[in-house]
Amino acid sequence: MSEKLLEIKDLRTSFRIKDDYYAAVDGVNLTVNKNEVLAVVGESGCGKSALAFSVMGLHTRAKIEGNIMFKDKDIANISPSDLNKIRGKEMSMIFQDPLTSLNPLMEIGEQIAEVLLLHNKQLSKEQRKEKVIELLNKVGIPRPEQVHGQFPHELSGGMRQRVMIAMAIANEPELLIADEPTTALDVTIQSQILELINDLKQDMNAGIILITHDLGVVAEMADRVAVMYAGQIVEIADVHTLFTNPKHPYTRSLLNSVPNSNEAQDKLHVIQGIVPSLQNLPREGCRFSARIPWVAESEHEDHPELHEVNDGHFVRCTCYKHFDFPDNEEEQQHGIS
């Protein structure tokens, strides 16, 4: 059994809209082990980024309930100053858009040095600079001495993301959260960045949470996968099981809707309806039921729970047992909106 690094217990992250709170993350339980990549997949609005932000404590106006046990501390209920000792040191984060995530008015070197300064007061200015150059080298940035004094807009998208990664690994964190790290990048740059994250993972023995909507990225990177829909986890499995033996209707629909470069498909599968907005999330019963109306109501659970169908493979609700794609995809398609 691998060593547990992070354990999220019944996490609920709610946002206030007008006078009510709406949970974007609604009762999530999840563990991340050392030296493991856990991918969290879902479409926009499923709560995957809200989950990542909750772990990092980056929500400024959300109500967070539940526990997030990081090693021996509950970082969901911790003072801001204690949290700041952990963020950037023991856990760190990479964001989606490296251009907006870097301060446009600060030199690259200064931005990376800041994270060293914050967590290691002993280093002298020269030592910090040395370390920054070393980090830039490590993430594969050519001419690091020059880049040190440059500004974000002078670098390409791929280089900027490398800078973000250098910043994230500067203090050798045990947990790294990557929120759509390659979505804003070209495909060849994407493969280079993923390769880099892979190399670093082996180096650092860290746990990685990879937030993404791209199933190809999941297949290439993940050890385990959690699929999220409407604020809940609907399926968790190791990556091979998830791609070869997916159970939940949402997982299966998602997999069928991706244009697959390996085999020719005539028609892509279309999921009926739309992802509900935060205010309109169904809070009772199976949250996916509205999008598979041909599955009878009686086949859903009243209070859908995660069932362990195999060792380490969990699926929410019993509807998966009765789910099949409709024969006539045509018919299904015109029923939209």
Binding site: N84, K85, F95, T100, S101, N103, P104, L105
Partner: peptide, 26 residues
Amino acid sequence: QRDFILTARAKGASESRVYNRHILRN
């Protein structure tokens, strides 16, 4: 509300540092 403020917080910068170093300057 800019993204790089999130980055600063994720680095472990205190609220006062976030304001003095990043928000004010910009």
